[in-house]
Amino acid sequence: MKQLVKLLPFLLSAFLVGSPLFAQPTDDYAAKIDSLIQTTSPRSFNGVILITQKGKTKYAKAYGYADFEQKIPLTIKDNFRIQSNSKQVTAVLILKEVEKGKIDLHSPIRKYFPEIQQTWADTVTVHQLLNFSAGIAEIDQPLVFRPGTDFLYSVIAYTMLGNILEKVTGKTYIQAANNLFKELKMHNTFCYEEAKNHNRVVRGYTSSKSGFKISNVPMTEKERLDFIPAGGIISNVEDLHKWDTKLHHGQILKPENYQLMTTYTIMAQHEAHGPEKIGYGYGVRISDKTSIKHIGHSGKGLGSASIKLYFPEKDVDMIVLENQYSEDSSLHYYFEIKIREIVMNSSLVR
């Protein structure tokens, strides 16, 4: 009897903690994101967010303006410049030609560029262009390092990949990419063409403490075309979710080529993906040393910022697109980083 009396406080405590009155707080990732995007310091959020789990929407919100001058609100269906998230599209297009036997990942690129004067064309491979380990700073300059030994992120590597694609397919990059989007039923995704599509894209802004101003980076026609394989694709969160679902569920590439895309031999650090070095595959970053594995990429510039992450163990997809680019470089990915942290500490992936 005495032992029972001693145990009563513990039994009562266990009962109360398990009762509705003392239930553990539910995961409030949605409330945390809501609170975050309404803050204005150190900068304002202006964009759209889509988070899904096993294909079901867990969070979807548009916040801010598609056009500040006309005060037109953003919607979840709006199209954005996805910038460097374009690179994984180029990587997939290359790998689809690998599947057809038209591209060899490990042949020297001299095979595709006989006109290059530099001798490094005899040693650099398509594989090294894809994972930025080629060391090419400029076409007419020596390499920055021996191919395969380091990481150098640049537009030029993916411009060259776009050129290779055109050489082996006989199509322009725009034709090849747009055909793939049509095949995947990504009806709001396309390569940016100034005169043709410009009113299908939300306006891009540069943000500062004084507010938002239209971002205008002049490009020649050649510069624009060269940029498309590296950062010139337009899409929205719904289409990008289709892309992630089909890519990571084996509906675009053969398993062996998906494995090539998401395996790495080189590592690099990037502010949007955390302080540590993580792997770089083909147009995607692979974080597999952290507690929660994720695969994805970020993009910024021309009045936009974005991040797109897929968490394979829980089939969670996180996409954030903004039509603003901060003048303060330390704030480029401020909200993208914070949202990533909220998701990684939520019940969605744990």
Rank of each mutant, 00 (worst) to 15 (best):
L74G: 02
S44G: 08
I49W: 01
Y65V: 02
Y29H: 09
T40V: 11
N79P: 00
T40S: 15
I51Q: 03
D34L: 06
T40W: 03
A60M: 13
Y65Q: 12
S44L: 07
T57L: 07
T39I: 09
N79Q: 12
L36P: 00
K54F: 10
G47I: 01
I33G: 03
Y59G: 03
I51C: 06
L50T: 01
P42G: 09
K32G: 08
T39W: 04
N46C: 04
D78C: 06
P25S: 15
L36G: 02
L50Q: 08
K32V: 08
Y29V: 04
I76L: 14
F80S: 02
E69D: 13
R43Y: 04
A60T: 10
D28T: 10
T26L: 14
Y59T: 04
A30H: 07
I51V: 11
Y65F: 14
P73N: 12
A23V: 06
V48E: 02
A60C: 08
Y59Q: 05
A31V: 09
A23Q: 10
K61T: 09
D34I: 05
G55M: 05
A60H: 04
G55E: 05
P25D: 15
A23D: 07
I51D: 00
K58M: 15
I72T: 15
Q24P: 00
N46T: 02
K71P: 00
I49L: 04
D78T: 05
I33T: 01
K54R: 13
Q24N: 12
K54H: 14
I72K: 15
N79T: 11
Q24C: 11
T57Q: 13
L36Y: 04
T40F: 05
D67N: 14
V48M: 03
K32Q: 15
T57Y: 01
E69L: 08
D28R: 10
S41Y: 12
T57I: 15
